[in-house]
Design a protein around this nucleic acid. Structure first.
Lengths: 202, 202
DNA sequence: CATCAATGGGCGAAAATCTGCCGATGGTGC
DNA sequence: GCACCATCGGCAGATTTTCGCCCATTGATG
């Protein structure tokens, strides 16, 4: 509802990962000047921690990092937040790196040196998509915990999908049925089982 | 069940696209020797025609072609056959080309000169996946695609969870059972249904 | 060769889910 | 009031999934 609370649900937050502190700080400053909320991490481990503890809506990460590479990090991040878009950047990317990154669900791949402008464009695209697709629901569900049993994780995902579709269609169940190609009766049952409450905002 | 029957009831057909006739013919001969059903096209236009008129289960195409590039072709192909996997190969691929290709749903990207063996491996992978797809409807892993029906998206997520867990535990099924807290029998069934192949790297 | 651990899979009963049929509710327009 | 539309839910049969029991295979070990 409100918009200037420090952590509303409507704030779009970017997780920026780079082991080079100077580049990290410079990029962060630039993005913040453009009004993007940025969270920083100078290693994959830190990034994973932040990902678990803070609401993150998109990730921009370096590919080459000591200890854990960007690819490994992305794989881990994927487990915790399957729907958060990831953008890579790197100077020495081989074709197979790019393929691997895209397979992990990368949205884009920027080449170093990254033009501030092109990074901004990419991030703004992510934000627009975020605004468009998800309004009220936060992308980061608590699918985080690896100790959560398989069944519950799948249920959480089902719930997320339905809530997402509901919110993009303004609570229209009929539209959800059509989009998800799911039987009406089944959808009703699932909503009740998963505790999904349809709310129409007029 | 079966594995080396020359013409199984489920015929897997590959569409091979390359503007270089010699390369095209050579690759086709090689693949046919391996028992792959191959359909040829020496241009994007021809390929699109064939795609419309003949049953094609996978596409392998050159990226650089006169008139219409591999990317444009793939985009068109995508419209006509959204679920057919596409593999690109090219000698001079830029990062942005690879990104564009993967976005168009490419499954892999091979670099020229293409080793016959690696092309074969890729194609065989496609065929295996195709077999799995036959069994459990279709499962082209696309967690982001919103046009994919609910059920398939959930199945894709289940597959992702299991594969992730498998890979973090180095293929140890026992560890997966423990982590996901899933019944061993159920896991086995799901793996078979979802076409998950456990691969141990020693 | 016997044994053990890990895994895959057939069988079948129990459980869960899907889904068509039908009635109920609430809002809108005539 | 009545027709219409969108939605929800009970009921029950069809379908799918789960999972215990039991056995086969494989690879390592004694």
């Amino acid at each position: 509802m409100s918009q200037d609370t420090p952590d509303t649900e409507s704030v779009f937050t970017l997780l920026l990962v780079d082991d080079d502190h100077d580049v990290l700080a410079a990029n962060a400053r630039f993005l913040r000047l453009q009004g993007i909320e940025v969270v920083l991490a100078d290693s994959a481990d830190i990034a994973l921690q932040r990902l678990e503890n803070e609401p993150v809506d998109a990730i921009v990460t370096d590919l080459c990092m000591p200890e854990r590479s960007g690819l490994e990090f992305a794989a881990e991040a994927r487990i915790r937040r399957p729907l958060v878009p990831i953008v890579f950047f790197s100077g020495l990317a081989s074709v197979s790196d790019v393929v691997a990154a895209m397979r992990l669900g990368a949205v884009d791949f920027l080449e170093k040196p990254v033009e501030p402008q092109s990074m901004l464009t990419t991030v703004l695209t992510l934000r627009d998509r975020y605004e468009g697709v998800i309004n009220s629901q936060r992308l980061s569900l608590d699918l985080a915990d690896e100790t959560v049993p398989f069944r519950y994780r799948v249920l959480a995902y089902e719930k997320l999908l339905i809530e997402q579709s509901l919110s993009t269609h303004d609570g229209q169940v009929g539209a959800v049925i059509e989009q998800l190609q799911i039987n009406r009766r089944t959808l009703n049952d699932k909503m009740r089982r998963l505790g999904i409450v349809r709310q129409i905002h007029d």
